Amino acid sequence: MTTVLIEDLEPGSADAGVPAHYGDPMREQRTLETSAGLVDRSHRDVIAVPGDERASWLHTLTTQHLSDLRAGQGTELLVLSPHGHVEQHALVAEDGTTAWLDTEPGAGEGLLKYLEMMRFFTRVEPRDATAEIAVFSLVGPEAPAVTARLLDLDLAEPRVYDVPGPKFAAGSVPPAPTALYDVRRFEGGLARRVPLGVDLLVPRGNLDAVLARLADVPRAGLWAYEAVRVAHRIPRLGWETDHRTIPAEAALVGPAVHLDKGCYRGQETVARVHHLGRPPRRLVLLHLDGVATDQPPAKGTAVTLDGREVGFVGTAVRHHELGMIALAVLKRNVPDDARLTVAESAAAIDAG
């Protein structure tokens, strides 16, 4: 099996250290869309938060309702600036003694710095656990069945609450995480059911044994994973966000923001924008014509309308069925039928 690393194809990429593909990116995409494949995402940063007061402490610091987080539960959270801009996004897995937070490569340092700054006299001991824990993902519609067969785990489907309307009544949002992901321990690590499949958080010393149990699962590279993520319109910190992104602009309110919990940094902006129902920008899926070039545009490429910049491209990929597509953040008033341009390509919004 040929293994091509990200850095061999994209020098300087933040995703360096994991395979881009194993020889056939399009076949790997089809595997992730139709059955199940195993993706190496071990470049993700991981923060461990042990301590008796970890749930209530994280509840006060983040956008998520975590005060009653229990063993076997996972979710998502954001850390916002005082003005409500997204600074951090992490997924959570609680095992009964530690809350494990995994985030984008390179983002862990900033997240840990913030957590350490906010410790005060709380009984928590956050630490960088990236060298301890590797993240792998079973992705695809058959991922839960593969997990049951090979790891002897039956994981419940993810539950994500609908976002309430702008004028919702106080107390109408349940006092629980807005996204709830089943987390189970298996021999070798933790498994967390998520919308795209099952994440595995594995101590690096157990990797060989766990990968041996999954030896029959087809491998898929990060290119395939990213294509599936884009097609499912799932945003990524640092790709579909910039220094002024607020949660509503990047479709992060549903899975990562509880709109009816106690005070946290940036809450005023979140509440104001939600109740007005008018975020300045929105996340969209673009179809690119691919006539002038077959190369996806780079992250940050401007999206223009009649020569005027109206947004930016986050992640652009070649999808095995949809062709060249991209997630982009556009000004809210750009109509769905606008004739857009991205570098050399014409672009159209997928309003579905």
Rank of each mutant, 00 (worst) to 15 (best):
R193I: 01
N206V: 04
P126N: 10
I234F: 05
A346I: 06
L259P: 11
Y225H: 13
W223L: 09
T2K: 15
V39R: 04
G12C: 00
H243E: 14
V303W: 10
E344R: 15
H43A: 08
H287C: 05
D208R: 12
Q73G: 01
T3W: 14
D128W: 13
T31H: 09
A176Q: 11
D95M: 00
L340Q: 07
A99H: 00
K261R: 09
H89P: 00
P335E: 14
P218M: 07
L69Q: 00
E10Y: 13
N206W: 04
A316K: 07
D306H: 06
D242G: 08
V334W: 14
A212Y: 07
V4Y: 11
E109Q: 13
E109W: 10
L207A: 04
H243M: 07
P335T: 14
L214C: 08
E240H: 10
R278W: 11
L222P: 05
R30C: 07
A209D: 11
L322G: 09
R281I: 13
H232A: 11
E344V: 15
T98V: 04
V194E: 05
Y181T: 02
A292T: 11
L259W: 08
L252G: 09
V194R: 00
V86M: 02
D24P: 12
L9V: 11
W100I: 08
Y264N: 08
S67W: 02
G165R: 13
V146W: 12
T103Q: 00
E226N: 14
W100N: 06
T2W: 14
R282D: 15
V217D: 04
R54T: 01
L283A: 12
Y181L: 03
D40M: 08
D15L: 07
A338G: 07
E94K: 00
P297L: 08
Y181I: 00
L305T: 05
T34W: 13
H65D: 02
A170I: 13
R193L: 01
R265C: 09
P235V: 07
R193M: 02
L237C: 03
E226I: 02
G17K: 13
A156E: 08
L66Q: 01
H65I: 01
G96D: 01
R204G: 04
A328V: 10
L207R: 00
R119V: 13
A131V: 12
E104Y: 06
T103Y: 03
V273H: 11
T245Y: 02
D216K: 03
V46K: 01
